[in-house]
Design a protein around this nucleic acid. Structure first.
Length: 512
RNA sequence: GCCCCGUUCGUCUAGUUGGCCUAGGACGCAAGAUUUUCAUUCUUGAAAUCAGGGGUUCGAAUCCCCUACGGGGUACCA
């Protein structure tokens, strides 16, 4: 067999915002495609009309734009294998379903949803489990149990029907998963899945196989929730006679809730204080808002890096990877087999790492928005750049900047009590106000701060004082707390007038 | 219930052909150093009897079996 071109697809259904687990699936697909010089395709699987959610498709497209994962083909991009939205391919599927019926691999079933529901309930009451399969299908209303004339009549009368796959009896179905290795399941245990619904739409199973085949998909990399139905998919390839070009499968482990049990779900994020969605999402019906990574201040590169390492590792001790580096080092056989719990602390750490790499000038743009929302008049930009440069190393997010630099913008109105007790003793006010008057006399040029500091040092040594005590008092007077960057930098940025004023205010207010 | 997948520090994981594993790294946590403060940074430390029990073997986290636990599936959802 000749080596096929690598073509992978990410195929979400537009039933809501894209979940972070889905993003990871897409990322792994992307990395695999790019590494192999292949194509990365976006297909929208909107075969369930009842679950369609307004805006979800656009949300998916926007999310990937933000994340910087580019599709080569698909919805919104185009390509030679379109259309890429399954609802637009609707006409196509029926003929394949019928082909399967004609080949004896599928059959018409006329049972209504209500009839089947009733059957399930009945079985349940007998503590048994109902399954539409090789054991029960003969007793149900379908083209296997009914004679040909009856079936033709029903079809002619336009009675609602579905087409179900006919699993052969007692046959072992083998599957080689790239992550899990060899998996075997017996056909008798599998149920006759609906392939074609009574509303004229295919189910996932049919549409998926037909489209993957038609779009020449070489590898299917998807979540583990699909593993149980993979034998059906393998059988479908066989039934259609497409075994030669059947894609290779890789079933990814799931992302789990950080606390209790179960897979990560929509609600977990805001319940536990972290986003599960790349972008903020407002539910069109309930108007409920779910937070997004973007709005929470995460950098897309950090999200990608964090996600990549959640279930995969390079085998080295490297943890920080650019997208390009990931493309280079990624490999399916280094994906772990077990589910991974999301770790908020590590996510923050990743963002911290990436935040440090962003130029101060760029960060200033976002910081200014934050300042504006706080009604802070924008000081000159070079000052802002300097502040960001001093402060960012202690922050995980741009939104942390404020707490670490507020004293640059507003003079303290109160002084932290704990700090006062420790840093402001009898006679401190007197000393501080003396220092204020003295440094006020220093000529106000760009050497002022250095000269002021020099004076303070001299004052300390002349008076045989504890240096820390005086410097900390100054910090307290200027900042209002024990926090803050290097004192000389604060002196420089705030300038003579402001510093002198704050020192005098503190001396007066605190007294002692 | 039945079927499938999994199980190494609190979390993400290394460990891929059994011996170099007295199990390594990262996040988080603790202590110390630097910073006269806070934070960053750096160093050190605590933290997994490799889910449990049986095998196989000179030797098992690594192979086999059983049990337990976790996850997924079991829809005219994807």
């Amino acid at each position: 067999m000749t080596e096929r071109k690598v073509r992978v697809r990410f195929a979400p259904s537009p039933t809501g915002p894209l979940h972070i687990g889905g993003v990871r699936t897409a990322l792994y697909n992307y990395l695999f495609a790019k590494q192999n010089g292949g194509d990365f395709i976006l297909r929208i699987e909107d075969t369930d009309q009842t679950r369609f959610v307004e805006g979800a498709e656009n949300y998916i497209v926007e999310s990937f734009k933000w994340l910087g994962l580019k599709f080569d083909e698909g919805v919104g991009i185009g390509g030679d294998y379109g259309p890429y939205k399954q609802s637009e391919r609707k006409e196509l599927y029926k003929k394949y379903a019928i082909e399967l019926v004609e080949k004896g691999w599928a059959y018409y079933a006329f049972d209504t949803a209500e009839e089947l529901d009733a059957l399930r309930k009945q079985y349940e009451s007998e503590k048994k489990n109902f399954q539409y399969d090789c054991n029960t299908r003969k007793g149900l209303r379908n083209s296997l149990s009914l004679n040909k004339q009856e079936v033709d009549e029903l079809l002619a009368k336009d009675v609602a029907y579905v087409i179900r796959f006919k699993f052969p009896e007692n046959e072992d179905i083998h599957l080689d998963d790239l992550i899990r290795g060899h998996v075997k399941m017996n056909s008798s245990l599998l149920d006759d899945k609906v392939l074609y619904k009574s509303d004229g739409m295919p189910t996932y199973h049919l549409a998926n196989i037909v489209d993957d085949h038609l779009m020449c998909i070489s590898h299917v990399i998807r979540g583990e929730e699909w593993l149980p139905s993979c034998p059906l998919h393998v059988m479908l390839y066989k039934a259609f006679g497409w075994e030669d070009t059947m894609p290779k499968f890789a079933h990814l482990p799931l992302l789990l809730k950080p606390d209790g049990n179960g897979k990560l779900s929509k609600r977990d994020g805001d319940r536990l204080g972290f986003p599960v969605f790349p972008l903020q999402w407002t539910d069109p019906k309930s108007k409920e808002v779910s937070s997004g990574y973007r709005e929470s201040g995460y950098l897309p590169e950090a999200v990608i890096n964090m996600l990549a390492l959640l279930g995969w590792n390079s085998g080295t001790e490297q943890e920080i990877f650019s997208l390009d580096e990931l493309v280079e080092t990624f490999s399916i056989d280094r994906i772990s087999k077990h589910g991974a719990k999301f770790d908020l602390e590590k996510a923050k750490w990743f963002n911290h790492q990436y935040l440090q790499k962003v130029e101060d000038e760029k960060l200033v743009i976002d910081f200014q928005k934050d300042l504006k929302s706080r009604d802070i008049e924008i000081v000159d930009e070079s000052k802002l750049i300097a502040i960001v440069g001093l402060v960012k190393e202690r922050c995980n997010f741009v939104k942390d900047f404020w707490d670490n630099s507020d004293y640059f913008f507003v003079a303290p109105e109160t002084y932290a009590e704990k700090a006062l007790k420790k840093r402001w003793k009898e006679g401190t006010s007197e000393r501080i106000s003396f220092i204020a008057t003295e440094i006020a006399k220093i000529e106000d040029n760009n050497l002022w701060a250095d000269n002021a500091e020099e004076f303070i040092m001299k004052y300390i040594s002349d008076n045989e004082l504890n240096m820390g005590q005086i410097m900390n008092s100054i910090r307290l007077a200027v900042v209002g707390d024990t926090k803050g960057v290097n004192m000389l930098d604060i002196l420089k940025i705030l300038g003579k007038e402001e510093i002198v004023s704050r020192l005098n205010t503190a001396a007066k207010k605190i007294g002692l």
